[in-house]
Write a protein that binds this DNA or RNA. Structure first.
Length: 184
DNA sequence: GAAGTGATATCCT
DNA sequence: GGATATCACTTCG
């Protein structure tokens, strides 16, 4: 239990993604168990932002692991990624769904009493994550990932959602039968 | 099922 | 330097 060490993130992106299931994302008063993630690699993954090259927007993905990569999509929604791989290697894990654990009342207020965390955009709104958290260190800051001793059950591997290229790659991981995933 | 939203990247002048 | 095409989604009809 406790905050995950940086070594946890300095590994193959797919391994990090799988191991993140069951861990807990904490931001201030709110916390949620990670139940669904997607892996985005560097080279060879056309769906990843990093595949378009190193830009001011994507530079964090190429930086040291254990940091947050937050980006604004479709004008209104932020998506939260966790940087993996050793520094210099591109790779990140997109958090798609959480199971709310703490600060649920706060989330309900922010979300208008609707579904809380079953989607990337909703997830960030519920936890209050914004692009101001871009580049935040997840091993030290108010935004962090902890191990609360949960053992994820069976893990389902499937294709990623909502993308147009490399969509057939089995890089989405979620906890089987969990009602909080974005798509059963 | 369709539209809407704003930052980025990639063309154009 | 300016315009437009793109986008890993959500909400509303």
């Amino acid at each position: 239990m406790g905050i995950l060490p940086r070594d946890f993130y300095a590994r193959n992106t797919v391994e990090v993604a799988r191991d993140l299931l069951g861990k807990v994302l904490v931001h201030g008063e709110t916390a949620g168990r990670i139940v669904e993630v997607e892996a985005y690699l560097g080279s060879g993954d056309e769906a990843a932002h990093s595949a378009r090259g190193l830009t001011p927007r994507t530079r964090v993905i190429f930086g040291p692991p254990g940091h947050a990569y937050v980006y604004l999509i479709y004008g209104m929604y932020e998506c939260l990624n966790i940087v993996a791989e050793p520094e210099g290697q591109a790779g990140c894990v997109l958090l798609r769904a959480l199971e709310p654990l703490a600060g649920i009342e706060v989330m309900k207020q922010r979300r208008g009493n609707k579904a809380l965390c079953n989607g990337p955009g909703k997830l960030t709104r519920a936890l209050g994550v914004t692009w101001e958290n871009y580049g935040a260190d997840l091993t030290t800051g108010p935004l962090r990932v902890e191990d609360w001793g949960y053992q994820p059950g069976e893990i389902t591997v499937s294709a990623r959602i909502g993308i147009s290229v490399s969509a057939e790659l089995p890089l989405r991981f979620h906890i089987s039968g969990n009602p909080h995933v974005s798509r059963p």
